[in-house]
Design a protein around this nucleic acid. Structure first.
Length: 350
DNA sequence: TTAAAGTCAATAAA
DNA sequence: TTTATTGACTTTAA
């Protein structure tokens, strides 16, 4: 781990400034915490990294460059997609990646927190790049990756349907595609139906395989292409009740994608309940979800889940709920695959 | 400067 | 092992 630490340093450089300012160095600690993630065996570590944000991505730092984080959803600052992407492009030389895991682990890193820090990304040479990459691997990228996926799956529509929750059934797969596409926004309604998530476990596994393949394949290419358009807008679908205000989103078609998904109002309580339910359903530990999807600590997530504040009272904390919301909006297989895989791997390790 | 919001990280509790 | 709690700290807005 020490090594890692060093490597780490690089990326951290950008934060240095911040660190200095913070007496404690709490942040630095933070980063470590992710990296360190309590040592597990080597093999495990790779998996762990996936989950935990990483531990060793640096181990192979050689590779780290290439790797695109895409799959891991990560914490991005929400906006910055476009810019981020830019950075990304150069960095990634498409990895020959053979397996998903590869991708996973390398990903550039991750210390999830420090958002604020990265936004500034100060210059740090390399570090800058890394940072960016990871930032970006925002959902968008991820989505893209997957998006192409559906095509392949079209044949598999069946499996999806169940998962999709019943509502969207097959469509989901397609939706995904279009959704991320040029202005398309999903029609939302897709899920939210509470009971909806069930089944996919089985399918997930399948999906994952495909993903792996897919990703390995042209994933990268796709990404870039898609990225160009900013898809991420999809989030909006509020479907049922989570969103208080429904309007917008649906229309959103093109416009707003502005980034960061400006979801208007989110019923935080409901989102919290749904997230809680999903985590339970799939046995996803809060810590994993918090770090991978929200880029927050377990304690934070726990608190948010148990004591969600009303949207109107939130400030910057809205971003966290938006992420949760977005995640809920993702097609099941998509949103679960990363986590699921991670979880699975972990369990293996244990 | 103060207060509130948001997090983290440590640790207690299940 | 996972989740809940909590004190400390940063950031942001009066």
């Amino acid at each position: 781990m020490e090594n890692i630490g060093n490597l780490h340093g690089v990326s951290h450089s950008h934060q240095t400034g911040d660190l200095m300012s913070s007496p404690h160095g709490r942040q630095s600690t933070t980063s470590h915490r992710n990296l360190v993630s309590h040592g597990r065996s080597a093999m495990v570590s790779s998996m762990a990294s996936i989950l935990e944000g990483a531990g060793e991505y640096r181990t192979d730092h050689t590779l780290s460059g290439p790797l695109h984080p895409a799959m891991t959803m990560s914490c991005d600052s929400g906006m910055s997609l476009s810019s981020t992407y830019t950075t990304l492009t150069p960095l990634q030389h498409l990895p020959p990646i053979s397996t998903v895991s590869d991708k996973f682990h390398h990903h550039p890193h991750s210390h999830p927190h420090h958002h604020p820090a990265h936004q500034r990304l100060t210059a740090g040479n390399v570090s800058g790049s890394f940072t960016l990459m990871r930032d970006d691997r925002s959902l968008a990228s991820m989505s893209n990756l997957y998006s192409h996926y559906p095509k392949d799956m079209s044949g598999m529509g069946q499996p999806l349907s169940p998962l999709s929750n019943g509502l969207g059934s097959l469509h989901n797969s397609q939706q995904t595609l279009s959704a991320y596409g040029p202005g398309a926004h999903l029609s939302n309604e897709k899920m939210l139906s509470p009971g909806g998530f069930e089944s996919h476990a089985a399918m997930l596994s399948r999906s994952e395989e495909h993903l792996a393949r897919g990703l390995g394949g042209h994933g990268a290419g796709m990404m870039s292409t898609l990225n160009g358009m900013h898809h991420h807008s999809h989030p909006h679908s509020q479907a049922n009740g989570s969103m208080l205000s429904e309007r917008d989103r649906q229309t959103t078609g093109g416009g707003q994608g502005s980034g960061s998904g400006q979801v208007e109002e989110i019923n935080t309580k409901e989102v919290a309940q749904r997230i809680t339910a999903e985590l339970k359903r799939y046995s996803i530990p809060q810590a994993i979800f918090a770090q991978r999807i929200l880029c927050r600590s377990q304690g934070t997530l726990s608190d948010l889940l148990r004591n969600p504040k009303p949207w109107s009272k939130l400030k910057s904390g809205r971003e966290t709920f938006r992420r949760m919301w977005k995640w809920l909006q993702e097609p099941e297989f998509q949103r679960m695959s990363a986590l699921r895989l991670a979880v699975t791997l972990v369990s293996f390790s244990r």
